[in-house]
Design a protein around this nucleic acid. Sequence first.
DNA 1: GAGAGTGTTGTAAC
DNA 2: GGTTACAACACTCT
Length: 281
Amino acid sequence: MPELPEVETIVQRLKNLVASKKVAEIEVLREKSFSGDLQNIVGVMISDVTRRAKLIRIHLSNDLSLLVHLKMTGQLIYVDDEIRMGGGHPTSDWVQDLPSSHTRVVIRFSDDSTLFFNDQRVFGWVRAMDEKMLDNEFSKYGPDVNSPDFTFEYFWSRFDRRTITMKQFIMDNDVVAGVGNIYACDALNLAMINPFRRANEINRDEAKRIYEAMRKVINLGIKLKGATISDYKNVDGFSGGYQDVALVYGKEGESCKNCGGKIIKEKLAGRGTYYCPSCQI
DNA sequence: GAGAGTGTTGTAAC
DNA sequence: GGTTACAACACTCT
């Protein structure tokens, strides 16, 4: 479910909440969701929380990190006494039920606060990794879409006569990391490019428009703390705001903000794809 | 109730 | 090698 802006939002919040806390206990409720040796984590302090692509890295004060991938339906929810007591907090009514039937891993800290990893579909995971394993994992990804390494010249160089559709191209994590279905649809609408166009039919000017649009929608997503379509919540239970300004994603039948045309939904490579056929050419 | 759809990505097959 | 189809799983929606 979450894409780069959602993960970035979670990381920013999590960093403030759990940095310098000590892991008191880890409870694994679903074997498939966790891998690593618990012995090496219990009693260790969290030193930092960072992000690479859509991965959340919880740095430990030994040489390990807990790497978290939320995939489609993962959530990291932080709960402490203050949150449990409520006080108008959006999570107050449902945090009482945690762990829920979807809770897969529970990390308890020495101050009694708790981090829940919930994941309805069990695609996501939490894995303890050393430097070498992390390098190997991160090597699968191209530069983050919002990083300085993702330059237009780099992006253009990756077109290289590829015949896949533009939507698949910008969602290819090896080309650029962090663009999922929502932001891919919106970026192509902003750039006025049809998602079914093939990468090798795109000229340099069009590529430039796509490049700028990708950066723009992702940065707006980060600013609005992500998009809440169904399961996504920030660490503290708040929803994101991007869905309210989305250009085409989830807007089938509505008017295109760009040209007033009617937004349609079609399937592209098995994924729901929203676009405006009148201005995205 | 059956069947399709869901924001991800790894794998196997072509 | 690039591209495509599908699987992993558990729900909701039509």
